[in-house]
Design a protein around this nucleic acid. Structure first.
Length: 485
RNA sequence: GCCCGGGUGGCCGAGUGGCUAGGCGGCGGCCUGCAGAGCCGCUUUACAGGGGUUCGAAUCCCCUCCCGGGCUCCA
């Protein structure tokens, strides 16, 4: 029997086509993903991007690659164009904190959000402010090589010196020159972008440099940190679609001019937006839901199943109604998993295992993996998860005494799928031992009533428990209950 | 203005030339004292509109309409 076709194929923004994934130095994979500017709470739009890359990280690891994954923290240098102020400073003023206090607050908030969503920690999370010297060394190199020029304490990248400019985004240099809005004075070319900006005397976030006091431009940090921590050429570089231009376009220009090596990145991967009523979820539109707020209503598994229900490159529309659909879907998956755990306790250790069953499980797993290998098709992969649930439920329905080997097979399949999709295996309610004992005793008495034919009172008890958040189900193997979350 | 994506059944959302996506909801069946869960079936001869290519098109080409995004604020 041929094994599953596991060769990953992935869409590359640079070539605009799906390509076979072949890392530069297998089995190592170097992956860099642009992290957030830690100026405010992260929202579900951020969650979408980082969950997608988390699944990619998990899947590459599953395939046997040794993945070095860097995701940065931007804590300086990201200018808000409207007011020409660093986003960190703007946030600090808003919250009446010192800039680095704001950074601390939201960086740790971000970390905790990522953990809550069961997003695996990258192997390194470098911060821009810890690389200021590295940045000006890189900028100096660009100036020396003639790719950048200094104007009154500012350093700009000279786009005209880099031929490939526009290859990633499709933006044409001539267009950029035409449609500029008020180019900064001293720029040779409107399309040139800042590597280092001069800071006025009272400016809060500034460092000394060969060009005087100032701060780095937004794009240089990612070039510098990725090269420093992963190397001069990367296998994967990703982020949200919004970063294609100018951020990633500029990164390519900077990095290739710094190192002299091409290509800077072999595979560029970009994630589609999370939308609300068709419009992009964003802070400025005010249509965003913070990860913390979302997790007050939904579990991490709900959020992940929702986000993975559409293809990563497509936009996905958020609404509470849709989230409720996914809560229902999640419950069904988790209930099936619980059924397996419960059945394991009363399973026959020996006995004829379901030959057909094992084959079905293998087939559905193989299908699951090959769908992920097809440009990370998580919607199809979650359809495979549904299929797994159906097979397992049907098996449990058909057997009075399930066989241990079959259940182990099923549980293993769930483990594999959960691990790759980053779903937390549902936990049996912990710390509720006393509640559990009380409910068990009530149900034992209720069983007695049912045996006596006193269904009216039995139903009343069931209803009372339901109102208390305890759902009772009468099954052929006896009553079961679960505590509502 | 320039450049990208899209418009799929009640809702969400896969699918790039023929082969059941899937979920949620609704209806019916089996099971059950009832309910719930589960399984099965139906809802599903769906693919913005018009033309074309083809034995065959949601899928390729042309035109039109509508929506979203990028064009140095955003994952």
């Amino acid at each position: 029997m041929a094994g599953p076709r596991l060769g990953l194929r992935i869409y590359n923004t640079l070539s605009r086509r799906i390509e076979d994934f072949e890392p530069l130095q297998p089995p190592e994979v170097k992956m860099y993903v642009c992290g957030p500017t830690v100026q405010d709470l992260a929202h579900l739009g951020h969650a979408k991007t980082y969950i997608v890359f988390d699944v990619l990280y998990r899947y590459l690891t599953f395939l046997g690659y040794r993945v070095r994954y860097a995701r940065n923290i931007t804590d300086v240098g990201h200018i808000r164009e409207d007011i020409q102020v660093d986003r960190i400073i703007a946030g600090a003023e808003r919250e009446r904190l010192a800039p680095m206090e704001l950074v601390d607050k939201y960086m740790f908030s971000f970390f905790s959000d990522m953990d809550s969503l069961n997003i695996r920690r990258p192997t390194i999370q470098p911060r821009a402010t810890m690389h200021i010297v590295d940045m000006w060394e890189a900028i100096s190199k660009l100036v020396e090589k003639g790719y950048a020029y200094v104007v009154d304490g500012n350093v700009y990248f000279d786009v005209s010196r880099y031929e490939g400019y526009g290859q990633l985004s499709g933006v044409r240099r001539e267009e950029l020159m035409k449609h500029r809005v008020e180019p900064a004075p001293g720029k040779r070319n409107p399309a040139d972008f800042a590597l280092w900006k001069k800071a006025e005397s009272g400016y809060l976030l500034k460092w000394s440099s060969p060009w005087g006091e100032g701060f780095p431009g937004w794009h240089i940090e990612c070039s510098v940190m990725s090269i420093k921590h992963l190397g001069e050429q990367l296998d994967i570089h990703g982020g949200g679609q919004d970063l294609i231009f100018p951020h990633h376009e500029n990164e390519i220009a900077q990095s290739e001019c710094i190192t002299g090596k091409k290509p800077f990145v072999k595979y560029w991967i970009h994630v589609g937006y999370l939308t609300v009523n068709g419009e992009r979820m964003s802070k400025s539109l005010g249509n965003y839901v913070s990860i913390k707020d979302a997790l007050k209503k939904y579990t991490a598994n709900d959020v992940r199943l929702f986000i993975l229900s559409s293809h990563y490159r497509s936009p996905l529309d958020y609404s509470e109604g849709v989230m409720e659909q996914f809560m229902e879907f999640r419950r069904r998956i988790e209930d099936c998993y619980f059924r397996v755990l419960e059945a394991r306790g009363r399973a026959a250790e020996s006995g004829e295992a379901g030959v057909e069953f094992a084959g079905q499980i293998d087939r559905v797993l193989e299908e699951f993996l090959s769908r992920l290998s097809d440009d990370l098709n998580t919607p199809q992969a979650s359809a495979s998860l549904t299929e797994l649930v159906k097979i397992v439920n049907a098996y449990l329905d058909s057997r009075q005494v399930p066989v241990a080997r079959d259940l182990d097979k099923a549980q293993q399949a769930f483990s594999t799928v959960f691990e790759i999709l980053g779903l937390r295996p549902p936990q049996v309610e912990s710390g509720g031992e006393r509640l559990y004992l009380v409910v068990e005793r009530i149900l034992r008495l209720r069983e007695e009533l049912r045996r006596q034919g006193n269904f009216k009172l039995a139903d009343t008890i069931r209803e009372a428990l339901r109102e208390a958040g305890i759902q009772v189900e009468d099954t052929s193997a006896g009553p079961r209950f679960k505590v509502a979350r």
